[in-house]
Design a binder for these strands. Structure first.
Length: 679
DNA sequence: ATAATCCTAAACAATC
DNA sequence: AGATTGTTTAGGATTA
């Protein structure tokens, strides 16, 4: 057994034996790994900028000139990021942290974690953040590519300009124009896209920056240098992870902190002083340390900074947000003044603007790419037909984040591409907790497991994702799905494996858990059968444990319920049903007291296919079944659902007295209480 | 801080 | 004898 669990258990594989503990451990570990990965990743991309140009001196010259602008731009980006995250002080903590976790995970995810694991580990917002992080990473690569291309272009231009005097200026001009046009087009695109993003809260780019494509020549800023923008400060001492964060922060950080931006610069004391003139790295680091895994709850992301009339997009937290400028301005007036004097329309400002545009552009491209990738991933996971809409999609990404509330989001798969990855059933609750499926969303007030499963049936069937339901709810579901509402242990096993890819793996563990649950919960009643025993569900018991606060001793609760008059019982029942797994029951008409008894069991059927008239299996109808109250007519029928692979056909010998079987226990007693049978 | 709930692990007994 | 099925206990984790 030891061997089995060791080898089979999913959890144990990655992180060791302790299920829950593993989670945290896993997360930690991942972060560690991430750090490493990050470090390397960052390092490699970063350095590219300077090296590869030397061919043309003109190019170098240009490069050099542009260097400055880029530097500035880079600083600005960093600053922007920090500024964004800083504003809310308290909020910033959250936002920062929100990014952090995903970052680490994101970095390692491709290699270390399966998508499912990631899904399980990460909360929706985290997932989003992760996505964004990945995008940022990809961006680096993309930038390199892009850089090279542009470099070539520039070189060409330069070559033509200098060496190629012969070439008519017009030709050159045309080329440049064409290039410019291209840039402009892209810029426009990007602007649109950014606007979209902004609306979604994905990016809180300041309108000013996003807008106003400059007419100036692109050459002022060489794309070659772009990578440096992402270099992430390159501060030696700085942990790699931080640099990554910085890279990614444009998206995530922005999104997360966008809300706080508008807020007046009430700097949080403890949190770093973003005001600090140049210590971007530290600022960022400190800010992002904490980890609330969800974005600021209150304000809609879209309400990014700058909503306030009295504020200026380039002014925040008492300082000028212009790239590379961190001048402190006491008030808006002063800032405006500063803006007009220091950042007037000149070459430098123009160049900086251009750089920013480039950055945005890169992001846009990256976003498109990632969107495509996401589509492909989803398609691969059988999620749903991919609909490649690079530019409209980004929205969806952020959509995930737009549910800070933690409520279960409408599955409406179609809506967001992201959703598929996180089956609706996985309320944020289930996810953010970190524990895979640990938090049974189904149990509480979330969507009923049955509908949940119905909707995501394919998903769970194919994706190795742990379902967000408790064992108890799953077992119950399995049993209720059968016409007879009874299953043997083995059949239950089969149902698990059939329905969930996840349960095809760590068999020893979950089977033990299933048995444990069957034994432990009163709601599962074992009924002796000729050839063995089958398990049935006592809905009443199942619902009983539902009431969140019905604490007290179980027995107490039990008594309370049993003590209820039928009407009362029914009422409570209805209430319970309403919020639990019987979607159909909720429909009016279903609940008339008279039929209540039958309804419990039936409810499910109603939902599904026509209830198999359980034939009278005459043989089997045990006495106890009759009590409608208890509803689940536990007719021990020999033939379990045929579906089961193993199910053994057996002679219909009703299990005579259910209660007789096995340990009578209170549960049996209770269910069979003659008194309760209302019919 | 605490109780409730859930999960996992494991020991053990009864049965197949 | 070995595997399966059930029961029970214990401890860790998460949540309210």
């Amino acid at each position: 057994m030891m061997v089995e669990s060791a080898s089979e258990t999913i959890r144990s594989a990655p992180s060791g034996q302790n299920g829950v503990g593993s989670l945290s451990g896993q997360a930690d570990g991942s972060s560690g790994g991430a750090t490493g990965t990050t470090a390397s990743g960052t390092g490699r991309e970063v350095t590219t900028g300077a090296d590869s140009n030397g061919e043309m001196s003109p190019a170098e010259l240009l490069h050099f000139q542009q260097q400055q602008a880029l530097q500035v731009a880079r600083q600005f980006l960093l600053q922007q990021a920090s500024g964004l995250s800083s504003p809310g002080n308290n909020d910033s903590k959250q936002s920062a942290s929100a990014v952090q976790v995903p970052v680490s995970v994101a970095m390692m995810s491709p290699q270390m974690l399966t998508p499912q694991q990631m899904q399980q580990i990460l909360s929706p917002p985290q997932l989003q953040a992760l996505l964004q992080q990945q995008q940022a990473l990809m961006l680096q690569q993309l930038q390199e590519y892009y850089k090279k291309q542009q470099e070539q272009l520039h070189l060409q231009l330069l070559t033509q300009q200098q060496a190629g005097k012969p070439q008519p200026k017009e030709a050159l001009g045309n080329k440049q124009l064409a290039f410019q046009q291209q840039l402009l087009q892209m810029q426009q695109l990007q602007q649109q896209h950014l606007l979209n993003l902004q609306r979604q809260g994905l990016v809180s780019l300041q309108p000013n920056q996003a807008s106003g494509p400059l007419q100036t020549l692109p050459q002022a800023v060489c794309p070659t240098d772009l990578p440096q923008l992402w270099k992430g400060e390159g501060a030696p001492g700085q942990p790699a992870e931080d640099s990554v964060k910085q890279e990614g922060l444009d998206l995530t950080g922005t999104a997360a902190t966008a809300t706080s931006f508008a807020a007046p610069p009430k700097v949080s004391p403890p949190l770093s002083h973003h005001t600090l003139p140049n210590g971007q790295p530290t600022v960022l680091t400190s800010r992002r340390d904490r980890v609330p895994d969800r974005p600021p709850p209150c304000c809609p992301p879209s309400s990014s900074h700058e909503e306030t009339p009295g504020s200026h997009p380039l002014y925040g937290h008492g300082e000028c947000k212009w790239p590379g400028c961190e001048t402190l301005c006491e008030d808006l007036g002063q800032f405006i003044k500063h803006l007009n004097t220091e950042h007037a329309l000149d070459d430098r400002s123009t160049a900086q603007c251009r750089v920013q545009m480039q950055v945005v552009q890169q992001l846009e491209i990256q976003l498109a790419k990632e969107s495509e990738r996401l589509q492909a991933m989803m398609a691969h996971l059988h999620m749903r037909p991919s609909e490649p809409k690079p530019f409209s999609q980004p929205v969806t990404v952020s959509a995930a984040d737009s549910f800070p509330d933690g409520l279960v989001h409408p599955p409406t798969s179609a809506a967001a591409p992201v959703t598929p990855l996180r089956p609706p059933g996985l309320g944020s609750a289930s996810l953010h907790g970190g524990g895979p499926a640990r938090r049974r969303s189904s149990d509480k007030f979330c969507s009923p497991i049955s509908s949940e499963l119905a909707q995501n049936h394919e998903f769970y069937k194919n994706a190795d994702v742990r379902p967000p339901f408790t064992y108890a709810s799953l077992i119950r579901q399995a049993i209720l799905e059968t016409p007879d509402r009874q299953l043997t242990l083995n059949e239950i096993y089969n149902w698990f494996t059939r329905m969930f890819a996840y349960f095809r793996r760590n068999t020893a563990t979950w089977k033990n858990a299933v048995r444990h649950n069957l034994s432990l919960h009163k709601c599962f009643v074992r009924v002796e059968n000729v050839k063995g025993a089958v398990w049935t569900v006592d809905e009443r018991e199942y619902q009983k444990r539902r009431p969140p606060k019905m604490t007290g001793s179980p027995t107490l609760v039990k008594n309370m319920i049993s003590g209820l008059s039928y009407g009362a019982l029914n009422a409570s029942y209805q209430a319970a049903l309403a919020e639990s797994s019987f979607p159909l029951l909720n429909s009016p008409g279903m609940l008339n007291p008279g039929s209540a008894s039958s309804l419990l069991p039936l409810s499910h059927d109603d939902v599904g296919a026509p209830v198999e008239p359980l034939p009278s299996n005459g043989s089997s109808s045990p006495p106890r079944l009759s009590p409608p109250q208890y509803s689940h007519q536990v007719q021990v029928k020999e033939e379990p659902a045929e579906a089961e692979e193993d199910r053994q056909p057996g002679p219909p010998l009703g299990a005579p007295n259910p209660s007789a079987s096995g340990p009578p226990e209170d549960r049996d007693l209770e269910e069979e209480l003659p008194g309760e049978e209302l019919s």
